[in-house]
């Protein structure tokens, strides 16, 4: 065991690099996925066929194909057409497209879940189409989206491990290297699990904070400050939240 720890200690700088690669893949992929989810999600609801149909096709295609095959395709096939992307770019792109397609369904579903009365009241107040979405519908849909986005983000983190196979030295790769140098399968893979779990847990905490804030803005639940107990909760707020 002490040998294992010694080996791990020597590898620590590389662990830092590996975690950084995994975080780049995860956060880069999530950022791209988020933008695509909004574009494709709203596109899927459009009344114009020229917008809706392509959105649906893209969503169905990227949901319906395997992430690893998408990564391989970007990494090995795209260069055949003369576009060579770096490994990291391929990873981020594949993760973004794949999870963006899932996210688009989350966006579409959440927008549709905002009660009809909210749309109708906006019409009665003569709010324009874009204004209504931006100021009334989206803030309410956003609170519904976040828990589902949290799930997708964690899945995206785990999916990022596939980037090892397009030659990225991410956390998965590090774990494999650790196994080779320690010859201890249990130790190295358990260590890998724990580090992935720690990252996932941190991401979940951040997303939960976003969720608390979004719900509070809709007048439901406590403020983030109350949840975090950063400031002592005033007695009135406590009574209100109870």
């Amino acid at each position: 065991m002490s040998d294992n720890l010694q080996t791990l200690g020597d590898a620590l700088p590389r662990l830092g690099d590996a975690v950084l690669v995994t975080l780049q893949l995860t956060l880069g992929g999530a950022a791209l996925a988020f933008v695509l989810a909004l574009l494709l999600g709203f596109g899927s609801r459009s009344h114009r066929g020229a917008v809706r149909v392509p959105s649906r096709v893209v969503v169905e295609f990227f949901r319906g194909t395997s992430l690893i095959v998408q990564m391989f395709w970007l990494f090995y096939v795209l260069p055949v057409f003369g576009f060579r992307l770096e490994s990291l770019a391929c990873g981020v792109l594949a993760l973004g497209l794949n999870y963006g397609a899932y996210g688009a369904e989350v966006v579409r579903g959440s927008i549709n879940s905002v009660p009809a009365g909210q749309w109708e009241a906006s019409t009665a107040l003569n709010l324009g189409h874009v204004h209504r979405l931006r100021r009334v519908i989206f803030p309410q849909a956003w609170a519904l989206m976040i828990p589902m986005f949290t799930n997708l983000l964690i899945q995206l983190l785990k999916g990022s491990a596939l980037a090892t196979y397009i030659l990225l030295h991410d956390l998965n790769y590090f774990t494999e290297q650790l196994r080779r140098s320690t010859q201890d399968t249990f130790f190295s893979f358990t260590f890998g699990l724990l580090v992935y779990f720690a990252i996932a847990y941190l991401l979940t905490l951040v997303m939960n904070a976003l969720e608390v804030r979004a719900k509070n803005r809709l007048g439901a639940g406590p403020t983030l400050r109350e949840v975090l107990r950063i400031a002592p909760v005033p007695a009135t707020a406590k009574a209100g939240a109870a």
Binding site: G117, Q118, A121, N126, V136, P139, L218
Partner: peptide
């Protein structure tokens, strides 16, 4: 929209914007 400007409505379920 120009004509609708002159018409207002109050609903059974209020439909205030919770945000």
């Amino acid at each position: 929209r120009q004509v609708r400007r002159r018409v207002g409505m109050v609903f059974q379920q209020f439909n205030l914007f919770p945000n």
